[in-house]
Design a protein around this nucleic acid. Sequence first.
DNA 1: GTGAAAGCGCTAACAA
DNA 2: TTGTTAGCGCTTTCAC
Lengths: 336, 336
Amino acid sequence: MDMREIAKLAGVSSATVSRVINGSSLVRPETVERVRKVIDEVKFFPNNSATTLKYGRSGTYGLIIPDITNPFFPEFIKSFEGIVVENDQEMLMATTDFHSGRMQQSIRRMLIRKVDGVALLASEIETEPFEDLIQNRVPLVTMDRGHIGNGLSDVAINNKSGMDQALRHLKDLRHKKIGYIGGFAGLTISDHRVEAFMRALKRVDIVPRPEFIKVGNYRITGGMTAMTELLSLKDRPTAVLAANDLTAIGGMRAAMKMGFSIPGDLSIIGFDDIDMSDIVHPPLTTLRLSRHELAKVFFDALEHLKSKPHAQGEQLSVKTSLIVRESTGPAPKRSV
Amino acid sequence: MDMREIAKLAGVSSATVSRVINGSSLVRPETVERVRKVIDEVKFFPNNSATTLKYGRSGTYGLIIPDITNPFFPEFIKSFEGIVVENDQEMLMATTDFHSGRMQQSIRRMLIRKVDGVALLASEIETEPFEDLIQNRVPLVTMDRGHIGNGLSDVAINNKSGMDQALRHLKDLRHKKIGYIGGFAGLTISDHRVEAFMRALKRVDIVPRPEFIKVGNYRITGGMTAMTELLSLKDRPTAVLAANDLTAIGGMRAAMKMGFSIPGDLSIIGFDDIDMSDIVHPPLTTLRLSRHELAKVFFDALEHLKSKPHAQGEQLSVKTSLIVRESTGPAPKRSV
DNA sequence: GTGAAAGCGCTAACAA
DNA sequence: TTGTTAGCGCTTTCAC
């Protein structure tokens, strides 16, 4: 069933059918109606691959994420898919599992499928693999890489204001020994967050202590391991910031397992505000990063790049804000 | 950059390039090498839409799910994507949000994109909307609908053995008053599970009590509401089964808020065994449904249907098994 | 073992 | 306002 068939049934040419489907205004209303009727009757739907072939564009945005199992991402995907579909486009999702081979593969999938742009929320590798995207003039929007270029925009997570709020909050609670559990070492996004933490620490006049900085893996397990190390120190922190909520939740689990009470002995602050954060016990104080806002920023940035193919990208940013729940409290009088 | 260009650079015809790319054995090894070299040099990748147009097949499987925010699904998607990509195919995901409009739209997206088959894990509506899929001869594999047909297979979740294990477990713990919190009313998949529950109850010689059956929404909120109602009964259950883990977790939260201890006053059993189940407090006893196994069954069923286009589908099934953790314990001596 | 050419379904320039 | 037609990039039959 193709447009020629519809054309025959409606007694017009396939060009007219095409015009009707694409809402061209130069078709006589009666003709439009006649064609519409046939389309409905035979439940015709156009073949996207022909259009894609013709245009060299698929009406699809690619989305590459590291780990769909981290609740942050489904919440993001949901918003992103909603926005994309609302705008009559399609989403092609790929997961890298923090693995650079999978990343390469994902990018190839995007290229082959002729996506109109890629939202890249993964960060395992630096610049190398997504150069193929740039070279093929596929608009690209990255997260927290701090690099822009032709057809390349970046969305920074504004750690600064959030971190400041978090540390101010802890300082108000009289915490002085504050630890940090990051993501993987070597990822720009992780590094940014660590650096933001160090700088924010100085802003509230606390001297960073290297032994209080640990790496995790953005998952519960990493949080557990890192927290266990942190709490095994003779002189241990009384408060810990985590690179994401999962890490923080893992940290809470480990701390509680070791007999520490939260927030009595130890305060913990997460990052993201996934739904789960409000459900764990105690509910997690965290830096909220709105998934919906983030999705919108990515989408708009992609559209912008698509509309001006060779233009310089923009450095965008989204804010985080502190949500105080019950995992933070006054610093203990003395270390337990 | 297309095959003709590669052909020119390698001094062959585009037909030969095509043959090389598709691994045809009728090309002289030296020619293959020459072409390969050019391909690598210019980083050529074929345009999928041309192939799709030619074949009428996109090498893509559609996946329709209700709610990506339920941790069960990301875990499934991850496995499914892995299997699909391993087999050089693509996955096109759509979310319905338990909304039949979104379902229609999702199916249309699949049709337009010429998917080779659809895995349908959503269940809001009955048969109507996916008839378009059948009519267009798109293989379809559904979950727990109990209907098969030409090009239509179904994967049943074998509730029977799992439910029996769950109820046997509760009976051993001396529970007699057992409640159930289902999914939405009116969804076949929910109804199946309720019925399975009722039958299993009889098998352990317990008379079902209508007031002990509540509906939820497959989310935490639904579990909370339903549990609150259940525990407000004068004569309340001492154990509750939930249609999924999220519901069970919501139920635990509500019960604890109302001052009941788990499992002291109330035992709870979930369904799915999402990662979170092991992390909540107390860790949830649940009926595990392996996401990876499920994904594999769906994929294989799809491949099978694709290979024999007009053949009758199969009724498949996957098993569930009871994972005992700490949310179940002996029935209280008397109601609190 | 390799090449020429037709055709998949759609769109847009051009013609009428 | 509508129709004719070329061509997007690939595969495959048929010729050589």
